[in-house]
Every structure is written in C-alpha cells, then in structure tokens.
Design a protein around this nucleic acid. Structure first.
Lengths: 152, 152
DNA sequence: CCTAATCTCTTCCTTAGAGAAGAGAAATCT
DNA sequence: AGATTTCTCTTCTCTAAGGAAGAGATTAGG
C-alpha cells in the first residue's frame, strides 16, 4: 500500500514521528498484556523513580482501589517490586525492576533499527540528538505537569 | 541482552525520552476522553492515511464489533469521518479529520515547549534532528510490522 | 441469474478496569 | 497515653471495552 512519501512540512514530520513512537509503545504494551494505565504508571516510574502508591494515586488521578490492583498486576508481571519504606512503616515503595524479558523482547526490533540508525551519525550529530532527547524529556514532563495542574 | 548493569548512559537517556513521549501522549488522550485503542487507531490513520474498517481490523487485531464502535466514538468526537468508498459500495473509508480543538489544546503546552526548544538549534542542527525524525518514523513503523508479523 | 464470497454493522455476553466506602495499621500531636 | 490523621489495602458495584455469532447489503463467479 502506498503511503504518500511527499515532502511534508516540519510540523507534519514531527507529528508523524510522535505518532509512530506512540504506536510502537502501545503495540509493545499490548503484546505484553499491559493496559494503558499500566503502561502509564510504568512510564511514570521510569521517569520519576520509585514512589509510594499514594504518590501514584496523585499523579495518575486514579483512586486508591484501582491503584492497588494496578500495582498488583505490575508486580505479578514482574515489572515492579514493593519494598517497605524505611522511614514510615505504613508506606510502601513501588520501585521498577529492570525491564523483564517480555517487554524487552517486544522492544528488540525497534531497538535494533534505531541502533542501526544512530550508528549512521557522526559523534557531533549524535551529540545534537542526545541533547535534544534530554531537553525534550524535560519539556514533555513540564507539559504534563501543566496539563495535570490545569485539570484540578 | 541479559539483565543488569549495562552502564550505557545513552540508552537510559533514550528510554527516559521515549517514556516521556508516551506519558504525554497517554495523558493527552485521557484528557480528551480517548482510550488507548482510540489513540492507537488515530495514530495509524495519521501515519498510513485513510483506510477501511476492515483494514483497521487487520492492523489492530481487534474484531469487527469493537472496531465499529471505536470508529463510532472517533467519529462522534470529530476525529474521523466515514465516507463511502467510490469503487465498492459495501466499503466505507475512514479518514482522519484535521485535529480538532480538544486534542490540539491538550497538545499546546508541549508544542510550545518543543517549539522553544527547537528555536535554540542552528539550521544545521535542526537538519540533523529532522533527518532523525523521518528515519526513526520509518524504523518504528517497520518494527511495528515486524511485531505484528511475529504474532500471527 | 442464482449462488457464493465479501464487507460493515448489530446484538448479546463476558470480563477487565475504575469509583466509593471503609477497615486496619502506623505515625503524629496534644 | 489517647485521639486524630495518614496511608495502604479490601470489598462491592458499575461502566465500558472486547469477543462471538449473525444479519443485511453488495460484489463477483459459474
């Protein structure tokens, strides 16, 4: 099937790029039996590090019931681990466990291709790309905070 | 390949970047009342262009029933439009409508920040970035095809 | 033509995920 | 120490998304 490979303008290129990233992420998650909320929380943990269920509640906007079972699912699937908080024995800390085989495997085709792609760039070009990756990560996180703040 | 301390800092930066993109996408979708599958299909339409419900069925792995209602939701929300296929009166073509206000609005904070970010690069650096965006789009699409093929 | 195949949509059923309310345990405050 | 607050987890209920089977309409084939 023919996708129009015409030269689009920059915004189109970027939108298509974002769509492809989303698409791949969602497809990978589904292939691992993860729902959207599970993936959502997993990404939060990836970005912000270990946190308590209560913090997950405030970040996701879910209530505590579903959150507990979401953590149960993630824990059962081996994506996170519950450890007691040292300072407060009521609390539990949910910490991500190194990406396990299932998710790692579904990511493999993309990782290989992106790896190949990156090997085609010079060190200077790679520096630009990774500078962008780091700054864009912050930008999206800030945008998320803004979104969340706007909803309350 | 096996687990633990791949000290690769770059890989971490990239993973965090991907997480932030996913996170933002999911948060935006949720803010617009879209589910993960809805967003999934919307991204497919964005990338591959208009297609029939049957093609969406094969691409998503859903069955026809949920797909019909998914399209209903997207159409009701103004994201897509159903038009009759010219060559076959049984068929319907689902085509994306220009991103409507709701989704556009939730994307605004991110777009502004990424816009600012990009204005900080030289034309040469931007060329590198957009070269990457285009190639990575293809890479992820191919990876998705590979994933889909592996599941059948 | 009449039959078989294709395509979309409808209906019914099942199940996973989210909300509400509350219990139990532990920390904090007076 | 006693009371209040905080935090996690449990239970019940409800909604919404997904699968299965089939109806209606249209095209293709003998």
């Amino acid at each position: 099937m023919s996708t129009p490979a015409m030269r689009s303008d920059a915004q189109d290129v970027y939108r298509r790029y974002l769509s492809s990233v989303m698409l791949h992420g969602l497809a990978s998650a589904k292939a691992c039996g993860l729902g959207a909320s599970d993936l959502y929380v997993l990404n939060i943990l990836e970005l912000a590090g270990a946190m308590t269920p209560g913090e997950i509640v405030t970040r996701t906007g879910l209530t505590t019931g579903p959150t507990t079972r979401l953590i149960d699912r993630l824990e059962a699937a081996g994506y996170v681990r519950r450890v007691p908080a040292p300072d407060d024995r009521r609390k539990v800390i949910v910490e991500p466990v190194g990406k396990p085989a299932a998710l790692d495997e579904t990511m493999a085709p993309a990782r290989r291709r992106v790896g190949d792609l990156m090997r085609g760039y010079t060190p200077e070009q790679l520096a630009v790309l990774f500078d962008y990756f780091e700054r864009a990560t912050d930008a999206y996180q800030e945008a998320n905070d803004e979104l969340r703040a706007a909803e309350d």
